[in-house]
Design a protein around this nucleic acid. Structure first.
Lengths: 341, 341
DNA sequence: GTGAAAGCGCTAACAG
DNA sequence: CTGTTAGCGCTTTCAC
């Protein structure tokens, strides 16, 4: 019927469960049970209710429901940025997993600022969410207190090197850095430069590099240069940084904080006729799929971003799901040796 | 104080405005006014209330508030995918704009399915949101009815070729296609192939190509081949599709449905020693920044994605903001002529 | 500038 | 399997 209404009657008054109940000839409570798939409802009654609801365009009001139950099928998600594929892939995993549980993500971008994260968390809590998904293990004390008091589930994604609030899902950044360092040493590189972005606000990249540098130095190699741009990662930035590093410190290898930068490095070398890895070796981090399309395969570390997001979301969405052992689920990394090292 | 609590007392009972009011020595109503920055409050009273709230870790409950006002500072956002930079950039614009208005995005991914979009919209409405942001102009009838009945603001982003529900923000896909067609004709290309992804579910790309093809044919050129992969866009896919097209129909130019595919095309040519644009010309769509880092500048059409998301979000967030003239805000496109055509 | 009363629409708990 | 009762915590409205 073309006069179907959703959420309010023609007169502007809201359609409530009462209206549905009246039309279906049942009590309002029965409508509530049908809407939530709760309790046991006879098939005929259910059908009547569903029909009546559709006819008058009833839309379930979760505000009222959440008010009674003091929780909602919402999960707050804070990501540092949407400009980086890594986080959009994690977010896709989160979104997909939550969708299977009938839970909706409310999200915010922190721009790598813990203060911004704190403001977002406070805001999210005002919705009485089922839980939160945060990036990394670094948070303000206030965030920790708020979470403890709110008594909700929290997943921390991407980082494993530290103590989780409740459950962390990710990879050991330090381990990944050490693996790459050993690989570079194996290949004979000793004068290594490092290139990063985001003004060092990406703590995970920082941990990775520190562990990397320690192994290099222990083996007698040296970090001959180290550049961190303020801008977010991009191929263009990687190209610029590479030009700078090569010009000022002649490294025999460059370790980039991620694949975007490394890809830009390769583009620089391609454009300048610099032979890789003969003149300089290049390595990235993440194992993004775009690398497969480049003229040379860049050595990198693969991380299972979708799976991390998915499992982190399932932990907060489903209260019956146990926390991983020791509060940490390590997805592990895999060194992908290309032909740039 | 280290026993600060957020959202509930030690005993597990919730902290409410009453508790804050009692501690501050004012009425609960006054606390409500302070929390919402509403009405007129004397500075001293405000300070007392803020202090009391912080001390007992009070978290504003928007469920209760929204229940009374029958609307909430939430906006539902449906994007087709997060795998494509285009939508993450639109989403960034949306997220940034909403943040300035104190509004939170609740989001869902439709995977280019109108049915999935419908389910998401129905779910969003259960939160009594301020408004919705949807991608494109194609929606199910039910979605249109639900929106009409809910009496909320809706922005449609990315597409301008059709009638908006209320306000559309984007570019004319048809116009962009025609511009590119004229450019290719100018350059003398007549045997043109088209490569797309997502199994044709991206209606905007479809409109663009139809307009493109019409101009080409009118001028005596021909679309010699047309391939649409099921997979989402990526450099790797572009590389594959290009290999297929070149092998089976010898086009003198390939129009890709977006920059990822076009970039992959360039990679294929680079790897195979095919000279661009001498052997084959390549063109994409969107003007993504990664193109600037590639060895050759790919001809493409620039679209202001961040701005589209930002303005679309501001329209739904701020009821005082008028709809654009004719319900459409055309951000225009700009042909970027590189050296691949 | 501040307070009191009333009720938004739903669901937990219990009764039948 | 279905119905009744009693609020959840806030904001609207009106009074002072």
């Amino acid at each position: 019927m073309s006069t179907k209404q959703f959420g309010k009657t023609k007169a502007g008054t809201r359609v409530t469960m009462h209206d549905v109940a009246a039309r279906a000839g049942v009590s309002q409570m029965t409508v509530s049970r049908v809407m939530r798939d709760a309790g046991a409802i006879s098939p005929e009654v259910r059908k009547k209710v569903v029909k009546a609801a559709a006819e008058i365009g009833y839309v379930h009001n979760r505000l009222a429901g959440g008010m009674r139950t003091t929780t909602t099928p919402l999960v707050g998600v804070v990501v540092p940025t949407l400009q980086n594929r890594v986080f959009t892939e994690v977010l896709t995993g989160i979104s997909d997993a939550l969708a299977t549980q009938g839970i909706r993500p409310v999200f915010g971008v922190s721009e790598y600022s813990l203060e911004a994260e704190e403001a977002l968390v406070l805001d999210f809590l005002s919705w009485r969410p089922r839980g939160l998904v945060l990036a990394g293990l670094e948070h303000t004390d206030t965030v920790r207190q708020m979470i403890a008091a709110a008594d909700i589930r929290v997943s921390e994604v991407m980082d494993m090197d530290g103590d989780p609030i409740m459950a962390s899902f990710g990879v050991s950044q330090a381990e990944a850095g050490r693996d790459m360092a050993r690989h570079m040493l194996d290949r004979g590189y000793r004068r290594i430069a490092y290139a990063a972005s985001q003004g060092g606000r990406d703590k995970r990249a920082g941990k990775r590099f520190e562990a990397f540098a320690a192994v290099i130095r222990d083996a007698g190699g040296q970090i001959v240069d180290d550049i961190t741009a303020e801008d977010p990662s991009s191929l263009v930035l990687g190209r610029q940084l590479t030009g700078t590093l090569l010009a000022r410190s002649c490294p025999d290898a460059i370790y980039f904080s991620n694949d975007d930068l490394a890809g830009g490095g390769l583009m620089h070398c391609l454009a300048e006729g610099i032979s890789v890895p003969k003149d300089v070796a290049l390595a990235g981090f993440n194992g993004l799929s775009f690398l497969e399309a480049l003229p040379q395969r860049i050595t990198t570390t693969a991380t299972p971003r979708y799976e991390i997001g998915r499992d982190a979301a399932l932990f907060v969405a489903d209260p019956s799901r146990p926390a991983p052992d020791g509060g940490r689920q390590d997805f592990g990394t895999r060194l992908i040796v290309g032909n740039t090292t």
